[in-house]
Simulated assay, not measured.
Amino acid sequence: MVALSVASSTALAGCAGSSASGPDGSGNRFVGGDGNAQEIKVADRKAAPQAEGTTLEGKPLKLAELRGKVTVVNFWASWCAPCRGEAPSLEQVYKENKAKGVEFVGVGFKDSRDNAKAFERKFKISYPSLFDESGQITLAFRDVPPNAIPSTLILDRQGRVAARIVGATTYSKLGPLVAKVAAEK
């Protein structure tokens, strides 16, 4: 599928809180009180990989098929406490934006299918999640890596990473970022 480096796998070794801080030298800015959300200037955006896989329900899903829509990609695991904490906020932002053409895709990282499905039932997650038991889908994002679980990427309509939130997100952080990217034409 995609050649992957061993160094990338260590970046996703466990749950993280707020691990990113300050400007990264590119002029992109970090937003939010804890500094873990990064907006990426249009000129500096990189294309998301052509990641694909099967959902927890066994249906094929390709991110490339969502091009033309703003897409939120959330990397999570049932064993991750911060992932459980952010799940209601993600679902709320999804419900408020799906009629506006914003898509959400979860990526269940290094988890069992049964535990991941139980997580989605418990938190009433209504958007699809790719099953990434081996971590290969997550590692395909090495050009703009999620860096930790949980992490959330917001892709613009051209399929480029427009924002990244490392660590757990909140409704008040994710909602405005999604709205900003969705307002771009």
Score class of each variant (00 low, 15 high):
31 V>E: 06
32 G>S: 13
32 G>Y: 14
33 G>W: 13
33 G>V: 10
33 G>R: 14
34 D>F: 15
34 D>S: 15
36 N>A: 09
37 A>V: 13
38 Q>F: 08
38 Q>V: 13
39 E>S: 13
39 E>M: 15
40 I>G: 04
41 K>G: 02
42 V>Q: 11
43 A>V: 14
44 D>S: 11
45 R>S: 12
45 R>V: 14
46 K>M: 15
47 A>M: 13
47 A>D: 08
49 P>K: 06
49 P>N: 11
51 A>G: 09
53 G>R: 14
54 T>W: 02
54 T>K: 14
56 L>R: 11
56 L>E: 05
58 G>L: 09
58 G>Y: 09
59 K>L: 06
59 K>Y: 01
64 A>V: 14
64 A>P: 10
66 L>G: 10
66 L>K: 15
66 L>R: 13
67 R>Y: 09
67 R>N: 08
68 G>V: 10
68 G>W: 05
72 V>S: 06
73 V>P: 11
73 V>C: 12
74 N>S: 11
74 N>D: 12
75 F>Y: 03
75 F>E: 02
76 W>K: 15
76 W>V: 15
76 W>C: 11
78 S>H: 07
78 S>D: 04
79 W>H: 10
81 A>F: 13
82 P>V: 11
84 R>F: 09
87 A>Q: 05
87 A>L: 06
88 P>H: 09
90 L>V: 11
92 Q>K: 15
92 Q>H: 10
95 K>D: 00
95 K>W: 02
96 E>C: 04
96 E>F: 06
96 E>M: 03
97 N>L: 03
97 N>M: 09
98 K>L: 01
98 K>C: 01
98 K>N: 03
99 A>Y: 00
99 A>P: 08
100 K>F: 00
101 G>T: 12
101 G>K: 13
102 V>N: 09
103 E>D: 14
105 V>I: 09
106 G>N: 07
106 G>P: 12
106 G>K: 10
107 V>H: 02
108 G>M: 10
110 K>M: 10
110 K>H: 11
111 D>T: 12
111 D>N: 10
112 S>N: 04
112 S>F: 00
114 D>R: 15
115 N>E: 04
115 N>D: 12
115 N>A: 12
116 A>G: 03
117 K>M: 04
117 K>C: 00
118 A>C: 01
119 F>W: 02
119 F>D: 03
119 F>M: 02
119 F>T: 03
121 R>I: 02
122 K>I: 02
124 K>H: 09
125 I>Q: 02
125 I>G: 00
127 Y>Q: 01
130 L>C: 03
130 L>V: 05
131 F>R: 08
132 D>K: 05
133 E>H: 08
134 S>W: 01
134 S>Y: 00
137 I>A: 03
137 I>W: 00
139 L>F: 00
141 F>E: 03
141 F>S: 04
142 R>Y: 05
145 P>R: 00
145 P>K: 02
147 N>T: 11
147 N>L: 05
149 I>Q: 04
149 I>H: 02
150 P>L: 03
150 P>A: 05
151 S>R: 02
151 S>T: 08
151 S>N: 05
